[in-house]
Amino acid sequence: MAAHPITRTLLPTAAALLLLTGCTSGADEPTTPDTSVPAVDFSSELSHLHGLHVGKDGTVLAGTHTGIFAIDTSGSTSRVGGSDDDFMGLTGVPNTDNLFASGHPGPSSFAANPLGLRSSTDGGGSWMDRSLAGQVDFHALSTDGRILVGFDGTDGLLVSTDAGTTWTPGAKLVAAALAINDNGVWAVTPAGLEHSTTAARTFSPVPDAPQLVMIAGAGDALWGIDVDGYAWRSRGGQDWQKRAQVGTVDALTAANYDTAYAATSQALYTLN
Results as ranks from 00 to 15, higher is better:
Gly153Cys: 04
Ser109Ile: 06
Ser126Phe: 02
Ile215Met: 11
Leu193Trp: 04
Arg146Asp: 13
His50Val: 08
Asp84Asn: 15
Ala16Met: 04
Thr7Phe: 06
Ala254Thr: 01
Val93Trp: 08
Thr248Gly: 07
Ala218Val: 04
Asn272His: 10
Phe138Thr: 00
Val185Ala: 01
Tyr269Cys: 02
Pro94Glu: 08
Val213Gln: 03
Asn95Lys: 13
Trp232Ser: 13
Asp97Val: 08
Arg201Lys: 14
Thr24Ile: 10
Ile147Ser: 06
Ser74Lys: 13
Arg130Gly: 03
Ser142His: 03
Leu117Met: 10
Arg118Trp: 07
Val136Cys: 06
Val159Asp: 01
Ala70Tyr: 14
Ala3Lys: 14
Phe87Leu: 15
Ala101Gly: 10
Tyr257Ile: 07
Gly89Met: 06
Leu115Thr: 00
Ala218Tyr: 04
Ser102Val: 00
Gly124Tyr: 03
Asp122Trp: 11
Leu252Cys: 11
Val93Asn: 13
Gly229Pro: 00
Ala255His: 01
Ala140His: 05
His139Gln: 06
Gly106Gln: 12
Glu194Val: 10
Pro169Lys: 13
Asp144Met: 03
Trp232Lys: 07
Asn98Pro: 00
Leu173Gln: 07
Ser76Trp: 01
Thr21Gly: 15
His65Arg: 09
Tyr261Cys: 11
Gln238Ile: 12
Ala218Arg: 00
Ala70Ile: 14
Asp97Trp: 06
Ala27Asn: 13
Trp240Asn: 04
Phe138Ala: 02
Arg233Met: 05
Leu46Lys: 02
Thr264Leu: 11
Leu18Lys: 12
Met214Thr: 11
Asp129Gly: 11
Ser109Arg: 12
Leu222Gln: 05
Gly134Thr: 05
Ala112Asn: 09
Asp34Met: 14
Thr64Cys: 15
Asp208Ile: 01
Leu115Tyr: 01
